[in-house]
Every structure is written in C-alpha cells, then in structure tokens.
C-alpha cells in the first residue's frame, strides 16, 4: 500500500519539478522566475522527505530543514534585490 503511494508521490513531485523548471526557463518576467525557483525548492524538500520514507531513515531530516531555510533566504534576497537594487541597506 505504502509502496504504491510512494511511487505515485515520486512521479507527481518529479513532474511538478519539471513543470517548475519549464516556467523558470519561459517565465516572461523576473518575478515568475523567482516564483519558479521557490516552487523548485519546496519540491526538492518534498523529494528529500520521500527518499527518507523510501529508505526508512531519519537521516535526511536535517538536509530538508537546511534546504527550507536556504530556499527562504535566497527567495527573499532575490526579491529584495529586484525591489530595491540592494539586499541589505
């Protein structure tokens, strides 16, 4: 039961990652690209969590946490740079 759900989740999250990548390449405005990058970070966390479930280990929790933090900071820094032309004023 859980194996089928895992395969389904891997496929959907992987497809979501590819779609976000297409938006990253096409995205007409810079805001769209930042949004696509943010979505890719969230999907990457989802993939790491799924690998943790698949291999039955809790080891990957820290990497998920660190990617969540780095993704948040980098998204805010990018958006702030576009908004103000500077990150720390």
């Amino acid at each position: 039961m859980i194996d089928i759900a895992l395969v389904f989740a891997f496929v959907t999250v992987g497809a979501a990652q590819v779609m976000a990548m297409i938006r990253l390449m096409r995205g007409p405005h810079i805001g769209d690209r930042i949004l696509a990058l943010d979505t890719m970070v969230i999907n990457a966390i989802a993939l790491i969590v799924l690998i943790g479930v698949q291999w039955g280990t809790q080891m990957y929790f820290e990497s998920g946490m660190i990617i969540a933090m780095l993704g948040f900071i980098s998204t805010v820094a990018l958006a702030r740079f576009v908004l103000r032309g500077d990150i720390i004023e």
Binding site: I2, A5, A9, R23, T39
Partner: peptide, 21 residues
C-alpha cells in the same frame, strides 16, 4: 493513513505546478 497522506501530498504538489504553468 500514511499512504493516503502521500497520495494527497503528491496530488496537491502536482496541482501547484500545473497552475504555475
């Protein structure tokens, strides 16, 4: 319960990226 939440999570993640496109 874990399998059901994995299904739901995968579905909503996919919908989010479909909306993005």
């Amino acid at each position: 319960a874990a399998a059901i939440s994995l299904f739901i999570g995968g579905f909503f993640t996919l919908v989010g990226s479909i909306g993005l496109l």
